[in-house]
């Protein structure tokens, strides 16, 4: 259902997403101040009748409107670059998972300790079922341990796809013949939803991603049961 929370970013489930939200808010604040200032200047130039027809240049003013925007831009680029490089980092991952985009489902492979692979298809929405999300649920969840660094390898088997989890701040293109790496750390338990983010064909909208974030013990239990 559409609620007002859809206007915002999803609540973060990883430190990176937390920082991304802070960065978003910070940048929005700067944009709002610029907008307010520009609107004020525009209004005052329209309303003001005191015009100096002999003013041809204003060195101080020109200097200021060059330096001030440059400084403002610095306040945006610095945290932006910091985040960009933080997101690129893989901090000694404890495990690797692989996800492969297919037309039209995701398949997952765990191969660090036991070799497990499974497909993850969308669960169709039945009638007025209030305990599930329409077009977001899958039959097999990607179960992962929280509080540990996880590397994800994203690739595709047929066409371009994109593996995305908004609440983790992750989006990686799935390209056939190429392995893209990303990493994340989930800091709370729960279900995290995402969707394919690269137009990949007729059922592009129907290949969602569900991560089930659980404690490490439960994760080990789960993977043991799956490998039997």
């Amino acid at each position: 259902m559409t609620t007002w929370s859809c206007m915002n970013l999803q609540d973060s489930a990883s430190p990176i997403m937390e920082q991304l939200i802070f960065f978003h808010d910070h940048t929005m604040m700067i944009i709002t101040m610029i907008l307010a200032m520009v609107l004020y200047f525009m209004a005052s130039t329209i309303i003001n009748e005191l015009v100096d027809r002999y003013m041809l240049e204003g060195q101080t003013m020109e200097l200021m409107w060059t330096i001030v925007p440059a400084v403002i831009l610095l306040f945006i680029t610095t945290p932006s670059l910091r985040l960009l490089y933080l997101m690129d980092e893989i901090h000694n991952p404890i495990m690797t998972i692989k996800t492969i985009g297919h037309q039209w489902y995701w398949s997952y492979e765990y191969s660090d300790f036991v070799n497990v692979e499974f497909d993850s298809y969308m669960t169709p929405y039945e009638g007025d079922n209030k305990s599930m999300f329409r077009l977001l649920e899958t039959d097999n969840h990607v179960t992962l341990p929280m509080h540990s660094f996880i590397r994800i390898i994203v690739t595709a088997a047929d066409v371009l796809h994109s593996w995305t989890i908004p609440s983790l701040g992750i989006k990686a293109d799935a390209t056939p013949g190429r392995l893209n790496q990303s990493s994340f750390m989930i800091n709370r338990p729960g279900l995290l939803y995402g969707q394919c983010s690269e137009i990949c064909g007729a059922n592009h909208s129907f290949m969602p991603i569900v991560i089930e974030s659980v404690s490490t013990e439960n994760f080990i239990e789960w993977i043991k049961k799956l490998s039997e």
Binding site: P93, I94, M95, T96, D112, F113, V114, P145, H147, S148, R151, T216, E217, F219, I220, K224
Partner: peptide, 19 residues
């Protein structure tokens, strides 16, 4: 923050947990 390796040794999973 409990790492996977620490928790695993507690539960005595035979496989080595590394990547």
């Amino acid at each position: 923050m409990p790492s996977l390796a620490v928790m695993a040794s507690k539960k005595e999973v035979p496989q080595e947990l590394s990547t």
